[in-house]
Design a protein around this nucleic acid. Structure first.
Length: 292
DNA sequence: GCGACAG
DNA sequence: ATCTTGTCGC
């Protein structure tokens, strides 16, 4: 059942969200806290995680949240968790975390309970870290709430604090010639907010890397580069692929099967994740269906 | 009113 | 985010 857009938050909610961002921002650690982060070969790093949320087309509420863990440096998937969720907040630039983080946090919690040995040593997050309207993007948010090192990996430049995707910026991109080339993104106050990174020799469109939590920008860029078989770093790419795949297997392919291809798809029963605020009323069970 | 707008 | 097949280039 396709559901329509979630209600747009009232101004009061936005104020609360901003205050929450300001409160949690004070807890961000924007430097290396782990030994492997300072090692030239990331010696000691064995597990890198990636998270993503994919959406059901034509439905602005149903989505699949996924968490994957890859071995490092092999980049092979050693853990996967996908589950369907019902989003409660709309997408608003600057408040992405309030839409996605609760479900990603749940996924991390399930991993900690089920397979504590597979908990990743760092998470790559689709979106920005400190490169954000108020210096506290989704990668910071997830990092602080899980206490895991997190890296913000955005596919487009968020134009905040004087950063602009203008001709000058495009020219700097043109000068990135090989995978690993990068240039700093400097905000109006002179602060380095992140780095534009050419993640692969064969991809001219850069990634925008910023600190999420418990890692330096330098290590974040170097590790992201070390996770790229293609433009999108493997942990995020696998989380994206698998969450979209899960939606297909769960909802099936729309439309009648083509002739000669009527091999019916096994449509799995979607795994719905337990969600706050959607419990049945406690106490008496639901009354039996009446005859009205 | 106009432009911007991570995912 | 998603809508979407083939196609041009290395």
């Amino acid at each position: 059942m396709a559901r329509e857009a979630v209600a747009w938050p009232p101004e009061e909610t936005l104020s609360l969200w901003k205050r929450e961002q300001a409160r949690l921002k004070a807890l961000v650690v924007d430097r290396d806290t782990e030994a492997w982060q300072r090692d030239a070969a990331f010696s000691g790093l064995q597990r890198v995680g990636g998270v993503d949320v994919s959406f059901v087309k034509g439905d602005s509420v149903s989505a699949c949240a996924s968490l994957v863990v890859l071995s490092y440096p092999e980049l092979e998937v050693v853990y996967e968790d996908c589950c369907m969720v019902s989003l409660t907040a709309p997408y608003m630039s600057g408040f992405l975390a309030f839409r996605e983080v609760p479900f990603l946090e749940d996924a991390v919690q399930r991993l900690r309970e089920k397979e504590p040995r597979l908990v990743p040593q760092v998470l790559l997050v689709d979106g920005n870290g400190v490169l954000h309207h108020r210096g506290f993007g989704v990668a910071c948010h997830l990092g602080v709430l899980t206490d895991l090192p997190c890296i913000g990996v955005a596919k487009k430049l968020l134009q905040v604090d004087g950063l602009e995707n203008n001709a000058q910026h495009k020219e700097k991109i043109r000068l990135l010639r090989a995978g690993g080339d990068s240039f700093p993104l400097i905000g109006g106050s002179g602060t380095v907010l992140g780095m534009a990174l050419r993640s692969h020799d064969h991809s001219s469109k850069p990634l925008y890397i910023s600190v999420g939590h418990k890692i330096s920008l330098e290590a974040a860029v170097r590790l992201t580069r070390g996770c790229c078989k293609f433009r999108i770093p493997e942990p995020v790419r696998q989380a994206d692929i698998r969450s979209r795949d899960y939606i297909r297997r769960t909802l099936g392919v729309p439309g009648p099967p083509a002739p000669g291809q009527e091999r019916s798809q096994k449509v799995q029963k979607p795994k719905m994740c337990p969600q706050e605020g959607s419990e049945e009323p406690e106490g008496e069970g639901r009354p039996p269906e009446g005859h009205s």
